[in-house]
Design a protein around this nucleic acid. Structure first.
Lengths: 336, 336
DNA sequence: AGTTAGCAGTCGAAAGACTAAAGTGCTAAT
DNA sequence: ATTAGCACTTTAGTCTTTCGACTGCTAACT
């Protein structure tokens, strides 16, 4: 579709624009990118690339900037997917090798490492609570009137909640609860703790409804709990030239400050390797000036959450995608 | 020190500036604030207030803006501490009456409510982990090789951690651990789990060091864990006119994005009712254009964390302080 | 046919000039 | 002690001009 010279020129334009954030002129391309043609020839090619929609101009006599179609082509066809240095690899390794006891911590570390290496803002959410399988559910008496419920799921997530009663709870009761809930719920997904289940348990139980009711309530609260969002490196974005525009900066803050938008953003990814959404490809109006790159953090087929990068459309896709691939693989391999 | 008329005029200037964010002219004061003097008289007074350092000018022929000394005087002497409407009281009540099981949730709710009512950005941290008294420490076997440690402190904080072993743990061992740790640590502060204590426990214990070592390690990790920061209403600040200045906006983001700065900020408060720091009164360079207002969330003499508001120096101190006082009292009273 | 030198034409960003509006400070009168 | 009145200062906005950076096109070149 595009001949080799056009591809080369398009790539040069985008590479240059990613670096400079300024419209790219034919002269610059010839000087910096070792093209064996005169600027006039390059100009002709640029004009055609613009006609095909890969490039834009800010005004009639300006240099070219990539269009979203241009970025898309660049991401799909032109980038070098191994744009990652030895130092970066070493740094990432040292970070990810840190011992962690909970995947939550691993997500946190991966998110901050990703931000440090790419210099962009990163976000993450943990696995969807409701989808997880209950591996163990345990009742523990803390005081005489304080009962703790601990739920451990297949992804290693630990959720705990405390219920305070007005009367003493006996060890016997705790025993019964442990048996009942474990036989009924182990192996089921958290979302299964619904009305029918509640009624079943209430019918089954020999003693006071007063004890069970708050337990079910609390467990449901846990399940419905909004996912936690990890955010890293916000301030880095503010040094980018695009943030000189107040409108862009506001959109960005608005996005990061609104949980629903963040969740939308992170959940929009398909279950494929790495997702790239450029500008208007995002459903979200607030994201029209940004690109996001996300990946699902998985081990086997278990979803352990989603990690994403938000940057300007002019983000360094090569680096971002390379680093992400590397981290993604490493997370997957190490935990196997 | 300042006669009544000067006070009245100073107050009018600051009230007006808080509203308009524009330098205040003598004419505006006469028109809007029902002063029974001509603008010329007011001008004379303004000139003297400026000479005494309570007011500033942006240029020779501009209106006046409050200086930090002016704000300080305003906060100390001039504000109305009951600047809170019935609707606001009702709203706050409805929010704070929500049932919560952990004080962490209460802090979260208080923080977001404060932001909603004042329209400023709010932040909070929980109680200092290391200072808390261990009320209960419990070991629970989750799988055969997964041991959970739960620590409940006097402030109601629940910290839990999981340790994975390579060998099975027996119920007997769990029993021993429960006894040992409870007799040794109950009633002590979390910071007491230090080297000597570690050695003592290691000496005391009859079986493998392999079991104890990771427990102590993990508990120490918990204790040293950075406090969690709750942040609410960032985007609201970006609508303020002072955020048109990129420098101000950057300082703000830089502050919110740096955990250490946030902790400094919240921890700088003296243990008095409500602390107000105006502009350069903050030690922190990033805060020079902002004011912060904080209070310690306490019940009795237990420190349950600190909640703060960050806004422009021109913040609505009357409202902020009134609302904060109300929330602070309510938190204290309800939990008694 | 593909490439290129050369040049006219376009546009934006920066600098300067001008004006109108908003406010102060001071003087002299009340 | 207060105030009317006016000269003076400064900003913000608008317009104009200039300068430099590019492009697009034409005609010549290989």
């Amino acid at each position: 579709m595009l001949n080799d010279r056009k591809k080369k020129i398009l790539q040069a334009v985008i590479d240059e624009y990613i670096n400079s954030a300024e419209p790219v002129s034919s002269g610059t391309l010839v000087e910096k990118y070792g093209l064996n043609y005169s600027s006039a020839t390059v100009r002709n090619e640029l004009a055609e690339l613009e006609k095909s929609g890969y490039l834009d101009k800010t005004h009639t006599s300006s240099g070219r900037i990539p269009s979203e179609k241009g970025y898309r082509f660049y991401v799909d066809e032109l980038i070098n997917e191994e744009d990652i240095s030895l130092e970066e690899i070493k740094y990432i390794q040292s970070k990810l090798d840190e011992k962690v006891n909970e995947i939550e911590d691993l997500t946190k570390i991966a998110t901050s490492t990703l931000s440090e290496v790419t210099h962009y803002t990163t976000v993450a959410i943990g696995p969807k609570t409701a989808m997880q399988i209950i591996e163990e559910i345990k009742f523990v008496l803390l005081g005489r009137r304080m009962l703790m419920v601990v739920i451990v799921t297949d992804t290693g997530l630990v959720k705990e909640t405390i219920i305070k009663y007005d009367e003493d709870i006996t060890l016997n009761q705790v025993e019964t609860l442990n048996n009942l809930f474990n036989t009924k719920l182990k192996g089921k997904s958290l979302s299964k703790i619904d009305k029918p289940m509640e009624e079943y348990i209430l019918a089954e139980i020999s003693y006071s409804i007063e004890v069970i009711k708050p337990i079910i309530e609390q467990i449901n609260k846990i399940v419905e709990q909004e996912e936690k969002i990890y955010l890293e490196g916000t301030k880095k974005s503010f040094d980018l030239p695009e943030f000189k525009s107040m409108e862009v900066a506001k959109n960005f803050i608005n996005l990061l400050d609104t949980k629903e938008l963040m969740l939308d953003m992170l959940n929009s990814g398909v279950a494929k390797d790495i997702n790239v959404y450029i500008g208007d490809e995002n459903d979200n109006e607030n994201l029209k000036d940004f690109s996001i790159v996300t990946f699902k953090h998985t081990v086997g087929d278990k979803d352990l959450g989603t990690i994403g990068i938000i940057g300007p459309k002019r983000m360094d896709y090569s680096k971002v995608i390379s680093v992400m691939k590397y981290i993604s693989n490493k997370l997957n391999k190490d935990k196997e």
